[in-house]
């Protein structure tokens, strides 16, 4: 089945000044091979792919080959500031990324703890304020802390990317109620669950919370079959969104028969 058939009720949406169909943001790292990465990204039908910047020697061709593949995909590129530990480093990386990738989009990632790669809220906020003023469309990677989300919105972020769980952990959504609270408090912001997604049902859960999209990398790249998993996530994200838009039923304490009871043959009452 083609995903277009499933997209009938899934409207286009807007993020960072672009109108998109897909609500998946896909990473480009950790795939078994560049060819596999290319195929998985195509299969996902994602319209945003994350990339990074690293030191490169003059003779190295690897990075440029990678960039040629990404450019050929003709989708939106979201550079990250992965590996930065201070606002200063992140700002410099963002400025370098803007020149190399020719985009004002930046996934702002400032790590505060090496063990669980938890974002540093203080440095992230400092960098976000400066980057927004400098004309960047900031996609800040943050925790599920409501007050941090509020501060990031206060400095002009139109997009927030709270974590589901630590980067690359595949633990899914550690704290759905916190994510729900952020959604409720900021209906006007674009919200993306970034990091920690492990399986398609995690993406469904994030989308059912009313999140606008999901950013994932390891869950696809480290699957036994990344291309097939990219397809699984494509459908999961559509299913979750449709489920959210359709509105789920209220939970009940007790069972309630779905088949009509009127006219039931061989009727007998429970004692």
């Amino acid at each position: 089945m083609k995903s277009e058939e499933l997209r009938v009720k899934s409207d286009e949406w807007e993020i960072g000044g672009k109108t998109l169909k897909s609500r998946m943001l896909i990473g480009s790292a950790l795939y078994p091979s560049p060819a596999n990465m290319e195929e998985a990204i195509k299969e996902s039908e994602a319209q945003i792919v994350t990339v990074a910047l690293r030191r490169q020697s003059a003779g190295e061709g690897g990075g440029n080959n990678f960039w040629e593949i990404i450019k050929e995909l003709k989708i939106n590129v979201l550079p990250n500031t992965a590996g930065c530990h201070s606002a200063k480093e992140a700002i410099t990386t963002a400025q370098m990324a803007r020149e190399v990738f020719e985009t004002n989009w930046i996934k702002l990632e400032v790590i505060g703890d090496q063990y669980n790669l938890q974002p540093d809220p203080y440095e992230t906020l400092k960098a976000a304020e400066i980057l927004v003023k400098d004309g960047f469309e900031v996609f800040p990677y943050t925790t599920d802390d409501l007050v941090v989300a509020k501060r990031l919105a206060d400095v002009g972020c139109k997009i927030l990317m709270p974590w589901g769980s630590p980067i690359g952990s595949g633990q899914g959504l550690m704290n759905p109620s916190n994510l729900k609270a952020i959604r409720k408090q900021f209906p006007e912001l674009k919200l993306i669950v970034d990091a920690g997604i492990g399986k398609p049902s995690d993406a469904v859960e994030a989308m059912q919370l009313g999140y606008d999209g999901v950013l994932l990398n390891s869950a696809i790249a480290l699957a036994q079959d990344p291309v097939k998993m990219a397809q699984a996530f494509k459908y999961a994200i559509i299913a979750g969104r449709l489920g959210y838009e359709a509105g789920t039923m209220q939970k009940r304490e007790f069972a309630s028969p779905s088949t009509p009871t009127v006219g039931t043959p061989f009727w007998h009452q429970f004692a």
Binding site: G27, L30, L53, R55, N64, I70, V100
Partner: peptide, 24 residues
């Protein structure tokens, strides 16, 4: 890029030259 010609390298400077790579 616009400032390459006017920016002079000094003794002790640390220079980083970064290029695109895979990222999440």
């Amino acid at each position: 890029i616009a400032k390459y010609e006017e920016t002079i390298i000094h003794d002790g400077d640390t220079i980083d030259i970064l290029a695109p790579v895979q990222g999440g």
